[in-house]
Amino acid sequence: MSFLEIEPFRIALYVVGALAFVGANAAYLVWVERKAAGRFQRRAGPTEVGPAGLLQPVADAIKLMSKQIIVPPGSDALLFRIAPVMVMAPALMCFATIPFSDSIVARNIDVGLLMIFAFGSINVMAVMLGGWASRNKYAIISAARVVSQNVAYEIPMLLTVITMLMVAGTLNLHEIVKQQEAGFWAWNIFRLGTNPLMPVTFVIFFTCMLAETNRAPFDMAEAESELVAGAYTEYSGMGFGVFFMGEYANIVIGCAVATVLFLGGWGSPVGFLPGVWWFLAKMYFLIFTVIWIRWTFPRTQFYGLLNLSWKILIPFSLATLVLTSIVMKIPRMF
């Protein structure tokens, strides 16, 4: 029995690993985002702190940690303090079930996908609580927006997930990847035999993921030109820092889930390199796409955002759902 199978070791390793992974990603995705934003606008991005600005996240972290966390008078002090924790903690929980490779997974749960979506929705509530507790008009507008936005986008997202469930037949993420191992033609995004609209399903899922994580062009909750910093207006120091880290952690999780569901997880299209590298490559490509989208499109208007969800994404995701069920059921009738 290797020491990995001893339960306390496993838990400790998972906690340390997840914390390190989330922390490193949150810190350095900010750097990546700033660098990429620079390049998209023909600038250089951060260059001053360390070589190529690589120490910028460290400097930012020191600055944020050394600042006082001011709880505004008249705010709900308890909720105000809990909200950042509630963004970060579910994000960490989600990492428990994401299979980075055939053997690297903290806990292979049979209802892994369900667990991720259950914890994923807490994020919304945390932003809402933070906005509500701040006792600030901008924050409350932002809280209202974040709820209506996420109610609208949770539906098409879950509809696409149901489609994927019908194709896969399991909620176990490990199993879902196993089914796609044969090669890139077996990845769910290319399995046109089960549903000819599979790439559309992927686009809908990805769009909803952007909206769920409050990323541009759907960053209604933090629309800085309209709402100062939205729900984060009254947060200072590490309170803001944790919200920020939570946002990036949620992006990582969203992209990891998209990789598992659609892009074959750790499956390699060509055959060399261990699976974990392929998983990370696909995940970071999706994260880059998220950044790419942010620096390409301006923020949508709020009714545009709701129209997109109710008039386009929900009908289309329903269509793919019906289509998949027809394609899957008809051959069995004969």
Partner: peptide, 29 residues
């Protein structure tokens, strides 16, 4: 609706091609 959605999606892809083209050019600052 389908035609508009496809056309709209196409314009998004065009926009993203413009920005990625800028991404791989040298910064001017």
């Amino acid at each position: 609706i389908i035609r508009d959605s496809v056309a709209g999606f196409k314009t998004l892809v065009v926009g993203m091609r413009v920005t990625i083209d800028q991404f791989f050019r040298r910064p001017v600052t």
